[in-house]
Amino acid sequence: MATGGRRGAAAAPLLVAVAALLLGAAGHLYPGEVCPGMDIRNNLTRLHELENCSVIEGHLQILLMFKTRPEDFRDLSFPKLIMITDYLLLFRVYGLESLKDLFPNLTVIRGSRLFFNYALVIFEMVHLKELGLYNLMNITRGSVRIEKNNELCYLATIDWSRILDSVEDNYIVLNKDDNEECGDICPGTAKGKTNCPATVINGQFVERCWTHSHCQKVCPTICKSHGCTAEGLCCHSECLGNCSQPDDPTKCVACRNFYLDGRCVETCPPPYYHFQDWRCVNFSFCQDLHHKCKNSRRQGCHQYVIHNNKCIPECPSGYTMNSSNLLCTPCLGPCPKVCHLLEGEKTIDSVTSAQELRGCTVINGSLIINIRGGNNLAAELEANLGLIEEISGYLKIRRSYALVSLSFFRKLRLIRGETLEIGNYSFYALDNQNLRQLWDWSKHNLTITQGKLFFHYNPKLCLSEIHKMEEVSGTKGRQERNDIALKTNGDQASCENELLKFSYIRTSFDKI
């Protein structure tokens, strides 16, 4: 039985969820670079991206490699990797027998973001014989899940209580170790020597080791999670996991709180800001991140802002960003909400898709409305799209047979046209069989910064309504002859009103 693990408890099935942008060198404390989270699957090609990484700022997932063999891993080693800020997950990587050479110096898994409450997941690794993470000293947050690894031993010899604050939620089941077939031998045991430290858990006094050649490092209890030197002297209180010299914040392997210019500090002093819960960055760093993602459509890219001495992905609820200094300031009234469309555009074809934009005031991208039916549609669209004030790209209304009016965009005031449909149009209306009105132009103002209007096959939309939009939106004169079809717009509506004058002759039985 794995020490510190839980057996036999019912657990939810383990679901495996399925960018080499360097964020800056980590400095003297770390020998390499800070790398983003990685999802490495199918083959070993991307694994080489770990070569210079000291910190993975995010998670590391290595999974679904069915053609790899043990010899493929023999020359692979990433000794610079010290810390993973989120979680480490391995799933069905064939041929991998140990992690001792792959990650010989991995010391800390912070667990800032977890995989279903777990910071370390080893699942269905069919050839893994031992973990071998002999320098792993601290899992700051989260638990361990090690399950269905039929060859995995050296679990009962690990004292997880020396690595985690609590072992109650560890789930370590259905491994070879369960069948008591392992016969784990710690260093020196074969020669009758006791080389590794022994600890007591559940009444068992057991030597602690990761492999037959690597003991588990056990520091004096007084050192807590700070770690200790090879001689057993406690590291500085700002260290986490390990250090090369005692009581020196510049000799830590990793930091308990924050890293700044080669030393570990309790908090980031001005003019620095907390970033990702582990390091200090200056304003320029946060500003660069903001600008890199301002026009990016890459998933996970955030326009970072500053709030409460932190550089964070977005302002919290009730705050909006001051564009001059990136500071989050309290909103006066309802907060603006910028919604970034991942692929640059979004099609609204149902109430469900409209709900995804609920509360958005600025759309960074283009909207395509293609709704053919739905219950209580006008009210639903207004509830979900009615706060949109600005669209950076274009607005396209296409084959939306259920629409009679666009009044559900009740606050839309600006279409920038930074991206144009077919390279020309910022407003595009095609084949809307029941569209009769755009907006009530006596109450609604709309500016279209650039781009043209396109109207074709809107049989109940009168040309007068379209011409009014040209005047109000500032697009009059931009359109070419064929942009607004004269014969297919309003051709099934009563669009022309003329005053009919009647004269009559009164007659009676005795007068003409």
Score class of each variant (00 low, 15 high):
Ile40Arg: 00
Cys255Glu: 00
Ala119Glu: 00
Gly333Arg: 08
Asn138Ala: 12
Met83Leu: 10
Val34Glu: 13
Phe103Lys: 00
Gln276Tyr: 06
Asp86Leu: 00
Val93Pro: 00
Leu326Thr: 10
Gln287Phe: 10
Asn42Thr: 11
Phe66Val: 11
Pro334Gln: 14
Cys243Met: 00
His307Pro: 01
Ser324Asn: 06
Cys301Asn: 02
Tyr118Trp: 14
Gly203Trp: 11
Ser237Ile: 09
Val253Pro: 02
His212Lys: 15
Cys315Glu: 01
Asn175His: 14
His290Ala: 11
Leu29Ala: 14
Ala254Ile: 02
Pro271Met: 12
Ile222Thr: 12
Ser54Gln: 11
Ile62Phe: 12
Gly227Ser: 08
Thr45Ala: 13
His28Leu: 09
Leu64Lys: 14
Ser161Thr: 14
Asn149His: 01
Asn282Ile: 00
Ile201Tyr: 11
Gln216Ile: 02
Asn322Phe: 10
Arg92Ala: 11
Gly111His: 01
Glu130Trp: 12
Asp261Phe: 04
Thr320Asn: 10
Lys310Val: 03
Lys67Gly: 12
Pro336Gly: 06
Asn308Arg: 11
Pro249Thr: 08
Asn52Ser: 10
Leu155Ala: 07
Arg113Leu: 08
Lys224Gln: 10
Phe275Pro: 01
Thr194Pro: 10
Cys301Asp: 05
Gly203Asn: 14
Leu50Trp: 05
Thr320Asp: 07
Met38Tyr: 10
Arg69Ile: 11
Leu50Ser: 01
Asp169Leu: 11
Ala198Leu: 09
Leu60Gln: 00
Leu136Thr: 02
Arg110Asp: 01
Ile312Arg: 05
His302Gly: 14
His236Gly: 09
Cys252Lys: 01
His307Gly: 07
Trp210Asn: 06
Asn170Ala: 07
Asn202Gln: 14
Cys196Val: 12
Ser98Val: 02
Asn195Leu: 09
Lys191Thr: 08
Asp288Asn: 04
Leu133Ser: 13
Cys182Met: 04
Phe78Cys: 01
Ser317Leu: 07
Cys264Ala: 00
Pro246Gly: 10
Pro70Ser: 04
Gly132Met: 01
Ser143Pro: 12
Cys215Met: 15
Ile62Gln: 00
Asp101Glu: 14
His212Met: 03
Pro336Met: 06
Gly300Tyr: 11
Tyr94Asn: 09
Phe258Cys: 07
Ala198Glu: 15
Pro330Ile: 14
Pro104Arg: 01
Lys148Thr: 15
Asp86Ser: 02
His226Cys: 15
Lys129Trp: 06
Arg297Glu: 13
Pro187His: 01
Tyr259Cys: 15
Asp159Leu: 02
Ile185Gly: 15
Glu147Arg: 01
Val305Ile: 07
Leu64Arg: 07
Ile158Val: 08
Leu260Phe: 10
Glu57Trp: 03
Pro270Gly: 06
Ser77Gly: 13
Lys129Tyr: 05
Cys234Ile: 02
Glu49Ile: 14
Asp169Gly: 09
Leu81Tyr: 00
Asp72Arg: 14
Gln276Val: 04
Ile163Glu: 01
Leu174Pro: 14
Leu128Tyr: 00
Phe205Ser: 08
Tyr259Ile: 15
Phe91Arg: 05
Gly188Leu: 14
Gln61Met: 03
Asp86Ala: 05
Thr329Asn: 12
Arg46Tyr: 06
His226Gln: 03
Glu151Met: 04
Val167Leu: 05
Ile139Leu: 06
Cys234Trp: 00
Val55Tyr: 09
Val121Lys: 00
Glu124His: 13
Arg263Cys: 03
Leu63Lys: 03
Leu120Thr: 02
Leu260Pro: 00
Thr199Asn: 11
Thr85Glu: 02
Gly142Pro: 00
Tyr154Ile: 05
Thr85Arg: 12
Leu88Gln: 01
Ile56Cys: 01
Arg162Leu: 13
Leu155Thr: 08
Gln287Ala: 01
Lys224Thr: 06
Leu99Thr: 08
Pro36Gly: 15
His28Thr: 04
Ser143Cys: 09
Arg74Thr: 11
Gly188Gln: 11
Ile122Gly: 02
Asn282Phe: 02
Asn195Cys: 06
Gly37Asn: 15
Val281Asp: 00
Arg69Leu: 09
Asn105Gln: 06
Val218Trp: 12
Gly333Lys: 09
Cys53His: 01
Asp248Gly: 03
Ile312Met: 12
Asp169Tyr: 15
Asn117Gly: 07
Pro313Val: 03
Asn282Gln: 02
Gly262Thr: 05
Glu33Pro: 11
Asp177Ala: 15
His28Glu: 07
Thr267Pro: 04
Ala119Trp: 01
Thr329Phe: 13
Leu240Ile: 10
Arg41Pro: 01
Tyr118Ala: 12
Tyr304Gln: 04
Asp178Glu: 13
Pro269His: 14
Leu240His: 03
Met83Gly: 02
Cys252Val: 00
Asp288Arg: 10
Glu33Lys: 04
Val200Gln: 11
